[in-house]
Computed example of a mutant assay.
Amino acid sequence: MKNLLYIFLCCSSVAVAQNAMYNNGSIRIHDTGTLGLHTNLINNAPFQDNLGTFGFYGQVTTSVTGAFIPVFYDVEMYKPFSAAILETSITATNALNLVDGDFVTYRNNPLENLKLTQNAFTVGESNLSKVDGYMLVEQKQNFFFTVGDSGYIRPLTLQSQSENVTAKCAYFFEDPNLPSTFTTSFNTNNKEKEVRAVSTTEFWDIDSSLPSTVSISWNNRSNIANLVDEYYQVGIAGWHRTQKRWVNLGSVDPIGDLNQGAVTSETFVPNDYEVITLAKMAVATELLDLDNYYVSPNGDGINDNLVIPELEESPNNRLRIYDRNGLKVFEKDNYNGEFNGYSNTNNTIYQRNAGLPSGIYFYLVFLDDLQLEYQGFLYLTDTGN
Rank of each mutant, 00 (worst) to 15 (best):
L111C: 03
G55Q: 00
G235W: 05
A197P: 01
V16Q: 15
N347R: 10
D291Q: 12
D149R: 07
S129Q: 04
L311R: 02
Q351D: 05
L311V: 15
L327C: 10
P270M: 12
L111E: 15
G301E: 07
S63P: 00
S13N: 04
D382N: 15
N97R: 13
V147M: 06
V365G: 06
N334S: 10
N108A: 11
S160R: 01
N19M: 07
V104M: 01
L86S: 13
I302V: 15
N108F: 10
F172D: 10
V165F: 12
Y374Q: 08
N108L: 05
A279I: 05
T53N: 11
P270D: 12
F47P: 00
Y322R: 01
N97I: 12
E112A: 05
I308E: 11
R352C: 05
Y335R: 08
F81L: 15
I85S: 09
E202N: 07
T146K: 13
N317I: 06
G337H: 10
N340G: 15
N113S: 15
N108D: 15
V165M: 11
S162K: 11
P70W: 12
L370C: 01
K115A: 13
L258G: 06
I153K: 10
H240R: 07
V295I: 15
K2Y: 10
M1W: 06
N220K: 02
N164S: 08
I255W: 01
V252A: 08
N385M: 07
V64C: 01
I224N: 07
L96A: 03
R241W: 00
L9W: 05
Q260F: 08
E125W: 10
N177L: 03
G359R: 04
K140E: 07
F339Y: 11
L210V: 03
V214C: 12
Q139S: 13
T61Y: 00
N340C: 09
Q371S: 14
S265L: 08
N385L: 14
P211Q: 05
E313D: 09
V147T: 14
S209C: 02
A167I: 02
N50M: 09
Y322C: 06
T348K: 10
E138P: 02
A282C: 00
S129R: 03
E313C: 00
S185M: 04
F54H: 04
Q48E: 14
L96H: 03
V283T: 15
